[in-house]
């Protein structure tokens, strides 16, 4: 059964079967969630546009949700999913209030730059 890599036959199909049969475990989902979380943190800390900062916060919340639902499947009960629903509801409320604050600030100062929003009182 040992053949060279160039010969069509048992070894190649065996490799292909092995490659596609690696089951997707909880760890895979945790890695994706960690990547989304770090991307969200980079967005919050480095962007100038306030709207994009708020969108990065939504990325962070989605990463947390993905983590919760992946663990809910690992343990086999639905607590993680219910908590994820609550976090989604919370994110909606927070986005609405945050954007309301942004709009009322924009009316006063005509800017959406985090570098220019630097006075406690004007």
């Amino acid at each position: 059964m040992e053949g060279r890599a160039g010969t069509p036959g048992a070894p190649r199909t065996e490799n292909r079967a092995l490659r596609t049969m690696v089951p997707i475990t909880t760890l895979h989902y945790l890695v994706v969630a960690a990547a989304l979380f770090v991307l969200g943190v980079i967005g919050v800390l480095t962007r100038r546009n306030v709207v994009i900062v708020l969108m990065s916060i939504e990325l962070i919340l989605n990463a947390v949700n993905l983590n919760l639902v992946a663990f809910s499947r690992m343990w086999g009960n639905l607590h993680g999913q219910v908590f994820a629903i609550f976090i989604t509801v919370d994110a909606a409320a927070e986005a609405a209030v945050g954007l309301g604050i942004l709009i009322s600030f924009f009316r006063n100062k005509e800017t959406i730059n985090v570098d220019e929003i630097d006075l406690l009182k004007w």
């Binding site: 994706v32 994820a84 989604t88």
Partner: peptide
């Protein structure tokens, strides 16, 4: 991804 994790309602 949620659909793949058997969470259709979420």
């Amino acid at each position: 991804l949620y659909l793949m994790l058997y969470a259709p309602f979420v």
